[in-house]
Write a protein that binds this DNA or RNA. Sequence first.
DNA 1: CCCGGTTCGATTGTTGGACAATCGGCGGGC
DNA 2: GCCCGCCGATTGTCCAACAATCGAACCGGG
Lengths: 220, 220
Amino acid sequence: MPASPPAPADPGAVPEVVSALRARILDGGLAPGDRLVERVLVEEFDCARHTARMALQMLQDEGLVAVQRNRGATVAALDMPRLQGLFEVRAALELESAHRMLERHDGRVAVPVHEAVSRLDAVCQTSRPAWRRVVEAHEGVHEAIVVAGESPRIADAYGRLSGEIRLFVVALRPLWTPATMAQHHRDLLDALERHGPAALRRHLDEGEETVRRALDSSAS
Amino acid sequence: MPASPPAPADPGAVPEVVSALRARILDGGLAPGDRLVERVLVEEFDCARHTARMALQMLQDEGLVAVQRNRGATVAALDMPRLQGLFEVRAALELESAHRMLERHDGRVAVPVHEAVSRLDAVCQTSRPAWRRVVEAHEGVHEAIVVAGESPRIADAYGRLSGEIRLFVVALRPLWTPATMAQHHRDLLDALERHGPAALRRHLDEGEETVRRALDSSAS
DNA sequence: CCCGGTTCGATTGTTGGACAATCGGCGGGC
DNA sequence: GCCCGCCGATTGTCCAACAATCGAACCGGG
């Protein structure tokens, strides 16, 4: 008998559908506004309708799809109110995390956060980096800050936002070069140790404002 | 035809079960740790198993029940790690709300918050007030702060915590008299205008510490 | 007496199929 | 031209079943 069971520890059918759909949404295979009809999902993933329903429910909790009673589910639309609301919650969670991190490390930024910024830097310095890699490294920075706050529950809450956040950060592509991205986050570390969590607030506000312009121009 | 349809606008079977169960949990009809067996719920509420399942799912999102894969659902236990995690997220949301409120009102506390504190005061000054009323008025104060932050999405996130918060606040009963409750929140308003959101942090820390002592003594 | 493996019942996860309720659009009637 | 009622499509709920999984009781050996 093999010591390690070859079975990949089946987590159930629902998570399967959830992650498949999530991947498709984040990769752009499904555009915001697209309808998600249960019958189609059933054929697509060869599962029962209840399974598809449950999956849609989970994705709604993640903010990636919007379901309206008796009216079906659609891929979440990226409009201005959503952007603002998302960044408000994000600010609340990240600022508290930063506060906790700085409080625990005597006002210094934790090592993993420095490492994450370095990785972002490295990715951005390669010639013509894939934007996807940039986005992932960028996520790593903010996630590192949240984790450094040492509150598993805040980290959980933030994790449920991450998909939705990515949806918007990819919209930064036309306006931010990898170089600006890297520069902004190097600056952030300095400012954090110098001015405290308020620096992170300014950083997030800048990001939101930029996404806002990106949405404005793409909506026109 | 009557102008107003007598039909109470059936919101569906799931919300029915959800609110019934929520009420029972918050009123103490169901104790933390009690098992919630799907079959029993089906008989109890005369609904399909999937409906009960969905309801449990929703209540899990609210933090009132814990479901473990293949192991069923139980009423959420009030242990120390949960208390800490809950108050961490709560602090993040309330502090950001307070910050936004103060920023918008030139450093002053918004009127609805004053009114909420007055209501709490009034309830606490009646002779032998029902603790339930005190808890509700107390909730009103913190909810008013969150609403004054003028971020619907933060308010939503906070709303999903409110049931869980109430579970712990009722535990304050043995340690806080209505008088202390009222005093603490009158002081909070002063401190908020004087020292900013940091005052709210101290307020929440005190509350958490008190609940902690209550849990300690009740666990012994 | 204690310990390990085994069996068994209870409960959950998933599936399939069925039906009523609801929504949006289409066409007919005024 | 506008309003109203019908119709297809889709969702919400229910019923019934089966496999997978877990916990606990059970049992035999040390």
